[in-house]
Amino acid sequence: MSATAVYPEPSVQFEPATAPRRIEKVSIIVSKGSLEGIYPALIMANGARMEGIEANLFFTFFGMDAVVKAKQGKVKVATVGNPALGLPTLLGMIPGMPAFVTRQMQKKMESLDIPPIGEFVQMIADSGGRLYACKASVDMFDLDKSDFVDAVEEIITVGDFYEMAAGGEIIFT
């Protein structure tokens, strides 16, 4: 005896596949303040502009270190709590270790023509990318517009961010 399963007709009919729509706009949220937290967002924003894609960057929490004058040049690789680095925690915590690892990585990046954060941020602004800081984070860290590099256009709310991200892709890093 054989049993035949009877499945109900799917209630949702899918449209036939069409050619994928080209990405026209990306809005990238930068929330982390380590070197490895900041660079991917900058590379993606710059890469978007290189393809003629509109790019917005929204800096929040420690991600703001990428655009705060006093912090921009001091961003480091996380040498503790970063298992992918392959560095035992007890070594990672030695004073000077974050600076050392960061220098090594910066040398490598310079050789690949990847700019330091300050130059990169300005480059993205010059290429037509738009940079914003998050109001909630600005209030939390007691900052104001003068603490940010000129490339940052404005301090905006989450609501403003969603409004400008409308119709494009949102990437959280």
Binding site: R49, M50, G52, D113, I114, P115, M123, S127
Partner: peptide, 25 residues
């Protein structure tokens, strides 16, 4: 794009004005 901006004689801002859809490409 970085060396294009530094060495071609045309800076990044102008590069994107000249080639809005992506200067390097």
């Amino acid at each position: 794009i970085r060396s294009l901006g530094k060495e071609s004689g045309v800076d990044i801002k102008e590069l994107y004005k000249l080639f809005p859809k992506g200067p390097a490409k």
